[in-house]
């Protein structure tokens, strides 16, 4: 017995025709574009100035010119020949990567449990998790420091990472996304013989990929650029992360801005790579979560 069905019809109207005969642009639209371009320039300016400064000699760094009078690669050579730079870069990469993986794993597990299971205290637990979002980092660094000190984690990678291995933001984000996964999918998998962990991994996780990508990039960027906590918890230069390490280019009497800007310029490369790879997921994830970057 073969069953017939109506095939999906391809759209017959040309999309190109719509484009060529589209509505005229209004003045309001042009004004919006100008405003957006202005906003874009405001945001790009510091990055452009950072790049310009990285190609300048020290005598020129305090001029506002975006084009160096005497462009040089000396700053890059100096920074890249400094062995410490690679150590800091490696520390930042390791910490940001581990923290990202940890968040993706544990935030989604907790978010899934809060979303899809009914258990006593679930609501209170969720409120408690959310309430931690209201406490600023500056208030937490002292308890974190005392914990690290007690547990012997000062000046270790573990000490830098532990406060961010799971986040309330990530848990909230993932819980919201798991709401979009129909319960029928999970129940079908339950009937098909999968245990709860298999259902989470095989059925639910692939359906929230945009959220995972958005979470991954937020966490990666947050940890890549983290400054206050790594500055407090680390004491030896070998344990510095890149943002903390870059501060060694300044002291009480002198600030070598051209070297700091060069280090900062190089440090943006991994974030740019992550952004380019996950760009489409980020936009979708941010739109779906209703978040601002």
């Amino acid at each position: 017995m073969r069953m017939a069905d109506t095939p999906i019809q391809a759209p017959t109207q040309s999309l190109l025709a719509d484009r060529t005969t589209g509505p005229r642009r209004s003045h309001g639209q042009y004004i919006r574009w100008v405003l957006l371009m202005f906003g874009g320039i405001v945001m790009v300016m510091p990055i452009a100035y950072m790049l310009a400064t990285s190609f300048k000699y020290s005598f020129e760094v305090h001029t506002l010119s975006l084009i160096p009078q005497e462009p040089t690669l000396e700053n890059y050579l100096f920074v890249l020949e400094d062995g410490r730079f690679y150590t800091w870069f490696g520390n930042s990469l390791f910490i940001a990567t581990v923290t990202t993986l940890s968040n993706v794993l544990f935030d989604s597990l907790v978010g899934y449990a809060l979303c899809k299971f009914r258990f006593p205290g679930r609501y209170i637990f969720f409120i408690a998790v959310l309430s931690t979002l209201m406490i600023p980092t500056e208030m937490l660094v002292i308890p974190w420091y005392l914990m690290s000190s007690t547990l012997g984690w000062l000046d270790t990678s573990w000490g830098i990472m532990f406060p961010g291995l799971m986040t309330a933001f990530g848990t909230f984000l993932m819980k919201q996304f798991f709401e979009t996964v129909p319960d029928d999918f999970l129940e079908a998998a339950r009937i098909d013989g999968l245990n709860e962990l298999q259902i989470w991994w095989t059925v639910a996780m692939p359906l929230v990929k945009p959220a995972l990508a958005a979470l991954a990039i937020f966490v990666f960027l947050g940890n890549w650029t983290a400054f206050i906590w790594p500055l407090i918890v680390t004491t030896s230069q070998d344990m510095y992360t890149l943002p903390v390490g870059l501060t060694t280019f300044s002291d009480e009497v002198d600030v070598e801005w051209e070297l700091i800007m060069t280090g900062a310029a190089i440090s943006t490369i991994p974030t740019l790579i992550v952004f380019v790879i996950f760009q489409r997921f980020i936009i979708r994830g941010v739109v779906m979560a209703g978040l601002k970057g």
Partner: peptide, 14 residues
């Protein structure tokens, strides 16, 4: 459910 030897078809297909 997996041990009941049944299969289910859902409204939204699942």
């Amino acid at each position: 459910p997996k041990d009941r030897d049944i299969a289910m078809v859902f409204q939204n297909y699942a």
